[in-house]
Amino acid sequence: MSKYDDAGRKKIEEAWNAIDDKYILEAADHTAEQTEAAGRNRGELKVVRGSRNGSGRSRIVAWMGAGIAAVVVLVVAGIGTVSFLNGNMTNKSSDAVNSGNYGTVLDNYRPAAEQENAPDNYGGEPAVTVIDKDGLSEDATFEPGGPNKATYVDDNGYATELTPSHIGEDPKNEAGERDDGGSARVNIYAWKEGGEYMFVVLMNARRYAADNGERTAESGAVLENVLGEEEVLAYLKMARVLDKDDFSFEVLPVSELEELLGVSTGGEDVSDAELWQIEAGLEEALG
């Protein structure tokens, strides 16, 4: 018999669901604040393009809205747009990575403010999960605690050390849950095409903003940091994609991003749900 068939348990659950509205409302304070913050973010969609100085060999496309940030990075050889959605995708999920295909997934990146020594301490520890079987290249294979690190220091002096802490598995907290609450999540999808490496970097800071609604101002600051040029470059540096001095950004229309990705963003005023769909669509496309 399923435990959910137990009448007593059901009674307890029903009773708990019906607790006084004021307690539910009280605990939702942060949700309401987050909603306001998200509302303020609406219409602030940003899209930037990065190009490798002088060579025209690479592009960065980024967008942000409603507390979600996403960055798409394409590194291609030669000139012109690569329709990666139609390419030979060999990497998508951790399973795919673990099966030996190219690729690195950086996951569970925690913003600087979560570090133990940061002034605004959320109690977390910096962690970047790297799932990398073959690595982006031989010299870019990460090892736990190994030498492959990149440090990002923001304007407030928060140091973020991007250090792979796990290989081949997701981090877990004490309860055995996937431990990605309250932080920005970063996935880097990579694959090889035509002898060149290609990357899609997804940054999703939604949960961070949602989880820390009582600190919306700081969350906003962190969001900016997460999306900042330096931050992106730190990731790329860690992935051994680019040198910092070899890159710059420029504004790219949303429509171009949509055309590039083959997805609809719903215009510049996109909602959480729409951006979640974009993320899901990207994952599906890359699969």
């Binding site: 979560e114 004490e174 849950e177 989880d211």
Partner: peptide, 10 residues
């Protein structure tokens, strides 16, 4: 999740 709550309350 624990992490979310922990983050919010420090």
């Amino acid at each position: 999740e624990y992490g979310e709550i922990a983050g919010r309350y420090g």
